[in-house]
């Protein structure tokens, strides 16, 4: 254990991390966001999903520091009388879950196809890459919208709300695999001809084993960078879909849903309902992106 820690602290990456104060701040912030979301049921002052605890008469309470604010609602309440801080914590839970699950699923699909494409080559490679090309012509948001629209027709509106979150994860994942596939394929093409792979082949290891135990670890660097940045993008995609009204249902609000709800009250002076979730979204995505950006530069020897 100590050895591992020691190795981490001695690494170039750690050295670079220490020298970037912005990245440190971003790491702390995103960690705080993630912890707040994970432990929301323990930390949040209220449970906004428990309808029985809501009181409409609490609605539109401004943040605690303003004249008519109430101490129990630090960031004020929304139109249904839900505590904004609690909805943000629960909302980021939904946003993060969707973002991380979508990226994980995307990675699995992309890496598998990329490895196969790069290692096997030939017609299969062309086919996968053609599909990737076609898909690349449609931006993630459009594909996600299409999948969501189709799900709406197939499942019907009444069933849709219950599975909306899975549909959303799948939609975002299905729209993001191409980048992984391309990166992994590119690296695989390079690795494939390296001596260690040929050596493995000579000693009779199966292609699948070679791909996963030898080639994969060597392409994980760029994939990891991609994934970090992709989490930010996936959270934005989710927020956008929810903002457009085709994401998660308002009974299970994500940050995007909260912003959409609050948007109706922005001009009537109840700015806190939309501004706080908006700030949270930006902080979350920005800190993830800063880390991803730093990782990319730190792992790219050319730019050092």
């Amino acid at each position: 254990m100590n050895d591992t820690l020691k190795r981490i602290f001695d690494s170039d990456l750690w050295y670079s991390f220490k020298r970037h104060p912005l990245v440190i701040v971003a790491a702390i912030l995103s960690l705080a966001c993630i912890l707040g979301a994970v432990f929301a049921p323990l930390l949040a002052p209220h449970n906004p999903f428990d309808l029985k605890t809501l009181n409409l008469l609490d609605a539109f309470t401004p943040p605690a520091w303003s004249a008519s604010g109430k101490g129990q609602f630090l960031l004020g309440t929304d139109d249904q009388g839900r505590d904004v801080m609690s909805t943000i914590m629960y909302g980021s839970r939904v946003s993060l879950t969707v973002g991380i699950c979508a990226v994980a699923l995307s990675m699995v699909i992309g890496i598998t196809l990329g490895l196969i494409s790069g290692y096997v080559g030939g017609a299969l490679d062309s086919f996968i890459m053609r599909v990737a090309d076609v898909q690349l012509s449609f931006p993630a948001i459009l594909i996600a919208l299409l999948i969501d629209g189709v799900a709406r027709v197939v499942i019907g509106k009444n069933g849709h709300d219950e599975v909306a979150i899975y549909v959303l994860i799948f939609a975002i994942a299905a729209s993001g695999w191409v980048q992984y596939a391309r990166t992994v394929r590119g690296s695989t093409l390079v690795e494939r001809n390296k001596e260690y792979v040929q050596a493995a082949r000579v000693i009779g290891r199966r292609p699948l084993a070679i791909m996963f135990s030898h080639v994969l670890p060597n392409v994980m660097g760029p994939v990891f960078v991609l994934a970090t940045l992709h989490v930010g993008a996936a959270i934005i995609t989710e927020a956008t879909l929810s903002f457009l009204g085709v994401g998660v249902p308002p009974t299970q609000p994500s940050l995007g849903t909260l912003i959409r709800i609050g948007n109706d009250f922005l001009f009537s002076g109840e700015w806190w309902i939309t501004v706080f979730p908006g700030i949270m979204l930006v902080i979350l995505v920005l800190s993830i992106n800063i880390i991803g950006d730093w990782l990319r530069d730190a792992l790219n020897p050319k730019l050092r």
Binding site: L22, G256, N263, T274, V285
Partner: peptide
């Protein structure tokens, strides 16, 4: 870093804020 903010700001938020500032 500012450009990172640009990527991290969802499109709809930019639109809402531009409307708030320049139109309203």
């Amino acid at each position: 870093t500012g450009s990172l903010v640009g990527v991290s700001l969802p499109n709809f938020l930019i639109g809402i804020f531009l409307i708030l500032i320049f139109a309203v």
